[in-house]
């Protein structure tokens, strides 16, 4: 048989093994390159304003240390309209009002809603707010418990807040969820969607490489014409 025959046969049978995955690679790849990564990250959906801290008097370090024995450090920042201090002690973090020292953590629902509304750049109202103990897949790497604040917009924007610090730990929306879903097919890690070194991917991409080579080899024959007399 001629080389063209073997090239075609190889391409066809390898295609049978890897064709659907090749389609998934291309479809997911096209989605990922077509939508700006900044949109996927949701930078336009939620952000904190860059407002400086006020010069108002605040709690001394010694007062904080008295309030939280074993304090190893702290962070002064702004949370919505007031200045607050995250105090690190005993391997965890507590939030207090910077002026009064009033304990703010864990954040209650009203406070969490206030923080989420201040961060959110859209106009939709909050659809639901829940303190969750089990992180869903889309925030699997974040520590629990978490405030999940879902907004009633077309994109199903959801903000995840730490009840200990009030920090926004993740922002999720439908474009992100599609990206993550397609990324799962792209790297073929159907559990955690994070392991790019999994055996399945290694085997599939080896076959994919041979498949691409066989296709390139076949192109060589597909464009040749019969020689002239």
């Amino acid at each position: 048989m001629k080389p063209a025959f073997w090239a075609r046969r190889a391409h066809k049978w390898i295609g049978l093994a890897i064709g659907i995955q090749a389609l998934l690679w291309m479809a997911s790849g096209l989605y990922m390159v077509s939508i700006s990564i900044h949109v996927i990250h949701g930078d336009h959906l939620a952000k904190s304003a860059a407002r400086p801290l006020s010069g108002a008097p605040m709690r001394e370090a010694s007062a904080l240390a008295a309030q939280f024995p074993g304090m190893t450090g702290f962070r002064v920042k702004r949370l919505v309209d007031r200045v607050v201090i995250e105090v690190r002690h005993d391997g965890r973090t507590s939030l207090v009002d910077a002026v009064t020292g009033e304990a703010l953590s864990p954040l209650g629902e009203a406070a969490a809603r206030d923080v989420a509304v201040a961060l959110y750049q859209g106009k939709a109202p909050i659809r639901s707010a829940a303190l969750i103990d089990k992180a869903p897949q889309e925030v699997a790497t974040r520590p629990v418990p978490l405030w999940r604040i879902a907004f009633d917009d077309a994109n199903e924007t959801t903000l995840y807040l730490s009840p200990d610090t009030g920090e926004m730990l993740a922002k999720r929306h439908d474009l992100w969820r599609w990206f993550d879903f397609l990324w799962m097919f792209h790297i073929m890690d159907y559990d955690a969607r994070t392991d790019v070194n999994n055996t399945l991917l290694r085997v599939a991409s080896s076959i994919g490489f041979v498949f691409a080579l066989s296709g390139a080899w076949l192109l060589f024959y597909s464009f040749r014409r019969r020689p002239a007399a």
Binding site: M58, M71, T72, G73, F74, R75
Partner: peptide, 28 residues
């Protein structure tokens, strides 16, 4: 890090005042 923060250090309010420019966050 388990070392206690030194209570004799300058206070955060002093650090902000000494910065002489806007500060968004202060961290130890």
């Amino acid at each position: 890090d388990t070392r206690a923060w030194p209570v004799d250090a300058a206070s955060p309010a002093q650090a902000l005042a000494a910065a002489k420019q806007p500060v968004q966050a202060l961290d130890t």
